[in-house]
Design a protein around this nucleic acid. Sequence first.
RNA 1: GGGCUUGUGGUCUAGCUGGUCAUGACGUCGCCCUUACACGGCGAAGAUCGCCGGUUCGAAUCCGGCCAGGCCCA
Length: 863
Amino acid sequence: MSPSHQLPKNYDIEEVERRWQSTWRDEENYFDPDSQKPRFIIDTPPPYPTGNFHIGNALNWCYIDFIARYKRMRGYNVMFPQGWDCHGLPTEVKVEETYGITKNDVSREKFREMCRDLTIGNIEKMRATMRRLGFSTDWSHEYITMLPEYYKKTQASFLKMLNAGDIYQSEHPVNFCTRCETAIAFAEVNYVPRTTTLNYFDFDGVEIATTRPELLAACVAVAVHPDDERYHGLKGKKLVVPIFKHEVPVIEDAVVDPGFGSGAVMICTFGDKTDVYWWKEHDLELRKAIDRQGIMTATAAPYAGMSSEECRTAILRDMQEAGILKRQEELEQRVGTCWRCKTPIEILSERQWFVKVHQDEILESARKISWTPEHMFTRLENWANSMEWDWCISRQRIFATPIPVWFCAACGETVIPDEADLPIDPTVDKPKTPCPKCGASEFIGEKDVLDTWMDSSISVLHVTGWDGTNKPPLFPAQIRPQGHDIIRTWAFYTILRAKALVGSQPWDQILVNGMVLGEDGFKMSKSRSNIIAPEEIVGQYGADALRQWGAGGAATGSDIMFNWNDVIAASRFQTKLWNIFRFVMGHLDAETENAAPVTELTDRWLLVRLSDTVAEVTAAMEGYQFDRALRTIREFAWNTLAADYVEIVKGRLYTDERSRASACSALATTMDVLCRLLAPIIPHFAEECYHNLTGRSVHGETWPEFAYADDTARRHGDLLVKTVAELRRYKHDKGMALNAPLGHVTIYAPEPVDDAGDAGRALAGEVQWSVGTPRLEEVVSGVNFNMAIIGPALRKQARGFMEAVEALSPEQLKNPPSTVTVNGEEIPVPAGSFTPKVAYRVAGEEVDVLTLGDVVVTIGHSS
RNA sequence: GGGCUUGUGGUCUAGCUGGUCAUGACGUCGCCCUUACACGGCGAAGAUCGCCGGUUCGAAUCCGGCCAGGCCCA
């Protein structure tokens, strides 16, 4: 197919992008299990199917797609899977809202079905956005965690860790949301500021300050600081709890803050995390005053049956009446809330399932992974070192992976299914054999379900082909791309699980991306109404412009503020590129010409610069510095190619001279390479151009390994470009049109230059290259210093040296003495430490003179 | 309160393994429709590189302190 010469004047983003998206076939992106190529497996994040693929996702996926496309071109067998992390509270809440029900109004199975239906619809919407953004997803490796083929692996992983002793059940204080009626992990607790009341009251003669009077029934001790003189001698005494009349001990503990309240604190099971610490540390009793629904228990009689709020009011009133409430103060505090429903969490002691957290093993694994940016590792390290409890993995919800165990109704033995029978739902299915301990055949299925991170933390095992038993054949993955907000969850849990299940680290590298902030610099949120949807950007400027914003908006890893200007600039760059391409295509007509030898200076210079660009962009892509890659390409295309090269060589292209073939050939090579460099970042645009150029798809091509060395061309070409630019500026300064004829120009260069007449055509003048310097009257007007030489050579004397040089006569500046006097001391003049600033005056002929470093240009006025 | 991180012309941003005049984009102003491009070209104005101190002949760049923002956590 011969290249089209009739390219449309305007680049129709919408049309071109849609056309290629419907032309490309999914199979082109499939991972090839039989390939001999090196593997490159990406542990893509499985987003929560909210229905909106938001701009933060878009940034993350841009990075992933740049990498996937680049690695394919580098000859890797790339797997770019797509998962969906379906389970969890948000969907349950959404379903409850949508149908106006609570989870208990319908059967568990019916409720799950409603959640699944909602999720499937949401996935569909998000897939559509992803396709519109042009991601080269491997849809043959899509996984959906709520479907049996996935969650049976979650269950298998649970059983494997249970058998290995890494999972256990225990009654332990956990963070509990009484609205959602489920335990939640620390990772799901948000701490928000609020104003509360600090109540001072008399506690059997000791003044206590508390923010949680409703927990008085759960009081198990009073604690003071060991050095607090106000309470000396109190340790070991028993105090009687007001209203409830049970006795509690007084203990001393250094964690008590003597400056807070009265310096004496009542320990309740449990008001906050510190209570849990004291409770464990001092082996105190457990008094449960609040239940799972947030209702006061019998322990809190006479307040039993009240909500904790009602109880609080009632107790304060009763204290007031009893005359023991001394005073109340306002207090700013941070309270833990459920990340989903914002309800303040309670700490309840519950039978729960836990995963053992071995900090050392996790950090050891994490250190074997290459972190980009490096400092993100520190976040994981800090989180790991600050974990105090094991990971609570059980949830009292419905839409999640069931915990695959039963309890024997007779003896209480925990019974687990055969792996071959997975997945199971123990609330529906029954064990196939009687209880191995007592032989009974009545069982109670575990109703608790798994934390959704138990699903997603085996994503890497799933995509590398785990069958639930052995090491996955493709393990480990090469890269994990993810945001820094989920380092403590997804990254942390995945490293933990990979170590527990396979025994090593899950990936070779982790690439951490930043968050997308709104145009106002704040995190995007509905309440700030600063949300920008990807569809909005794509609708106006197209996927490639959004992708350029993703690549160039900020350095990889740092937070990036959304900015319409960047998107607009991106689309302008495409317009510019399109015009360059159109121009070039208009001149490439004969196939033979495009393959002609590149002989002329300007053309060879272009290839030298192209070669530099390839090296720089390749290095940037290897280091995931997409901003640097894009900047380098833009700089080359806009300045080197369009502004410098095309402007100079244009004239030659309009002629029939044989040297024109050299330019065509250089341009054909350049456009070919440029399209390949652009392919990962702007796949639609690159494809449109490349297809016009070659008739083939750029995405099936290899990454350019173009190397072209020609020192003479580099030197002379730089000179030519600089000189032509200077002369154009000269014309502009003289008020001349750029195509207005210029007088006779002589360029005096240090060596002979053959520009094939390019400068003359570009400037519409007679240009003659000459060697040496013209016979001009030179006037020294100053001096230029080279600090890079002076500094290291003279150190402290540098300043004095420069002053001494400035004091030299013009004649001496032109012919420098071998030494100068600095502070009475003769010091040698380092070679190249300065050059005189020279102005030229011409006595006879009337010419203008331009000087550019060691090049002198004379311009005659005859025109 | 802790950890990590950032602070560069009106706005956003590069540089941050120290070297004379600090990158680019958007915006502003002036000139130019030069056979690829006015979604363009040329040029101008605009920055004491958060503040203070230190190291150095020389610091946006290294060190310390402070101030401010962001993220994660207590």
